[in-house]
């Protein structure tokens, strides 16, 4: 099980007029081959920025302040823009959230696929076109030949997301990052897209990073989870462990807000909102919303501690509190 992407103490700040937004503030994790990883957290927790920073495409006023990023042991953060382009799309593919806006409305599907293929391979236009048709077939688009000539607005939301996935696959990446790939889709289409991602992973021997706020998707798609809160890692563990024995109150709160069919229980929404990241709360950033907060949580930043075999948690009180859901 080789290491694919390693992010080490990454800090990415946005220098806005209102102040410095510490969107990602010391995030570390490893994505391994064949071990689908979930990045989970509310919107604003820094999931997307972390990945964009790893791919070197945080745009101004955002800036990577510190941290190291490795792909298969190779350090990425010193690479030139030209070298990074060989990573983006070629090693790491990215599917963004909203299929309705992730395709350029003014160019045909074929044009956009060929563009990416020819960025990464020395193909002629015809070769690239044929590859594009094959990609569309791979992601399950019927009449791929005609669809190549379609404009995005002529496709349904689910179709567009399939095209977006096809484009992410065009460079034959080893790692696919899917950023909320189903949030903007109808429920029936969601299942199809998830199935497609699973099948493709196996078929193409490609690993997956799934960005989501939905613990249900995490359970279905991933083997390992990194829980992010306000730009920091709250907890990292295997998916199974997170669901069975959450150690961070925030993880538990996320779990409690997911409906479950097997048990009858009250859904508990998380009170309060994501904190202001210009002046984040002192100590543990979750303390204003945490039911278990004590003085130490206000005063000191909790370290990310080992809490078991390949398990990390950043909470002062993880040993004392029992967060298992009552069976």
């Amino acid at each position: 099980m080789g290491e694919l992407l390693r992010v080490d103490d990454l800090r990415t700040y946005f220098y806005t007029e209102a102040g410095v937004v510490k969107a990602v503030d010391g995030v570390s994790f490893v994505a391994n081959e064949g071990e689908p990883l979930g990045l989970v957290g509310e919107s604003g927790s820094g999931k997307t920025v972390t990945v964009l920073a790893a791919m070197g495409i945080v745009s101004r006023p955002g800036k990577i302040v510190s941290g190291k990023i490795f792909f298969k042991g190779e350090e990425l953060d010193h690479k030139s823009e030209k070298e990074m382009r060989k990573i983006r799309g070629k090693k790491i593919g990215y599917v963004s959230q909203d299929p309705n806006s992730s395709l350029d409305p003014l160019f045909t599907v074929g044009n956009q696929l060929v563009e990416v293929i020819r960025t990464h391979f020395e193909d002629t236009k015809d070769q690239a076109w044929d590859k594009g048709v094959k990609l569309l077939k791979l992601v399950g688009i019927p009449e791929a030949d005609t669809r190549m000539r379609s404009y995005p607005h002529e496709l349904s939301g689910g179709m567009k997301q399939r095209v977006a996935i096809a484009r992410a696959l065009a460079g034959e990446p080893e790692l696919l990052v899917a950023d909320e790939p189903t949030t903007n889709l109808d429920v029936t289409i969601q299942a199809q897209v998830l199935d497609l991602l699973k099948t493709l992973g196996k078929q193409l021997n490609m690993s997956l990073i799934l960005i989501t706020h939905d613990m249900g998707l995490i359970a279905e798609m991933t083997k390992r989870v990194v829980v992010l809160y306000a730009g920091k890692v709250a907890e990292e563990a295997s998916t199974l462990e997170v669901f069975q024995t959450p150690k961070h109150p925030y993880t538990a709160a996320l779990l409690a807000s997911v409906p479950r069919l097997d048990r009858k229980e009250v859904l508990v929404p998380i009170g309060g909102g994501i904190p202001n990241l210009i002046t984040p709360p002192s100590g543990c950033r979750f303390h204003p919303r945490c039911a278990y907060a004590k003085q130490i949580c206000i005063d000191q930043i909790p370290p990310l501690e080992e809490s078991g075999q390949r398990r990390l948690v950043a909470c002062h009180r993880w040993k004392e509190i029992d967060l298992r859901r009552k069976a």
């Binding site: 806005t16 969107a23 604003g44 999931k47 920025v49 959230q97 909102g273 994501i274 202001n276 210009i278």
Partner: peptide, 12 residues
Amino acid sequence: MTEAKPATKQRG
């Protein structure tokens, strides 16, 4: 880039 936005809706 939606993630980058600080939570703008501050109550109060």
